[in-house]
Amino acid sequence: MPDRYPGYDVLSKRNTASWNDASRQVIDARLAIVDSPEFFDERKWRTLRAICDRIVPQPAGRAVVPIAAMVDRKLADDHRDGYRDARLPPQREAWRRGLAALEAAAQARAGVAFHRLMTVAQDALLRDMQCGRLDGPEWDDMPADLFFRERVAHDILAAYYSHPVSWNEIGFGGPASPRGYVRMYFNRRDPWEAAEAKAGHEAAARDANENM
């Protein structure tokens, strides 16, 4: 995937007027999350990490975002969303059951643990889950497609896109208080926003981003 905002690092604004103390505290804490489980046992942790790697395949040569640990903390705190499809159990139970069921499917299909599968096979299993083609006693009436949409995709992607690394990737401005934005019109960028690499002018974008 091309680097669309070369050299852009939202953290370089940490000590500017774009960040208030509250934002600094929140992001610092998020960056301090340790990549190990508090909620899941070792086995489910390995499955979860393998799933996270497929839902968000992170580019090599970049600090890895501990997505699985972020999902794990949401469950450790049992921090809920405020609604639950009646066909799903509460989130902790949904995750436990779903991960066990996916493991069972991997064992049944290939005789190995999910995290040992080739990525192609992992993707195939996840796609089957997404389409509701996985079932069995392990699921206990929990629809696999619903689990995929409401828990797997929802929780993993919410975790990734709460991390500054993902903001760099998509050119999002990140925290913005007290300073917001001035230039509102098409193709106008405030000096504290990510510069996009235009074909043939990548160096200019990098220069702008690194000297923000």
Binding site: S23, A158, P175
Partner: peptide, 22 residues
Amino acid sequence: EEFASDETHQDKLFWTDERICD
């Protein structure tokens, strides 16, 4: 002083107690 520029953190403003939807 208490509002961060952060979607996850600001969950604190929402009704996140369980509700069941069907």
